[in-house]
């Protein structure tokens, strides 16, 4: 499992609108989590929508700040200042355990 995680490359995009406290906090948070859990296997692109408003439509951004996990697929969005580490890690699919339990839960529900 750990091996598989290492081979993955996380491609993240953080959408902000100017240097607001929420945006700065989100950027700090994601940098911290990535350093701790992804060990260099990631890239973060920060997009300031005040400078590039036309980019908001493509990733269906409505809330600010929004972290988009472009890869691994499927695309997921985490909105907010990312202050809850657990939820961010689940959203990023870093905590595989949680995701697996979630998946099995879903299987139970659908069957």
């Amino acid at each position: 499992m750990a091996k598989a995680a290492k081979e993955k490359l996380w491609e993240l995009r953080l959408y902000i609108a100017g240097q607001t406290p929420k945006s700065i906090l989100a950027l700090q948070n994601i940098n911290k989590y990535c350093k701790e859990h992804l060990h260099g296997k990631y890239s973060i692109e920060v997009i300031d929508l005040l400078k590039n408003p036309q980019l908001a439509e493509g990733d269906q951004i409505f809330a600010i700040p929004t972290l988009v996990r472009k890869f691994p697929e499927p695309i997921r969005k985490i909105i907010g200042d990312l202050s809850n580490e657990e939820r961010v890690l689940v959203g990023l699919n870093v905590r595989a355990m949680n995701l697996e339990t979630k998946a099995s839960d879903e299987k139970k529900r659908s069957s």
Binding site: A17, A26, N29, A63, R76, K77, I79, G80, N84, R87
Partner: peptide, 12 residues
């Protein structure tokens, strides 16, 4: 496909 954590607004 959306997770919410912490404060946000609808600036988007």
């Amino acid at each position: 496909e959306i997770e919410e954590t912490g404060e946000y607004d609808l600036e988007g």
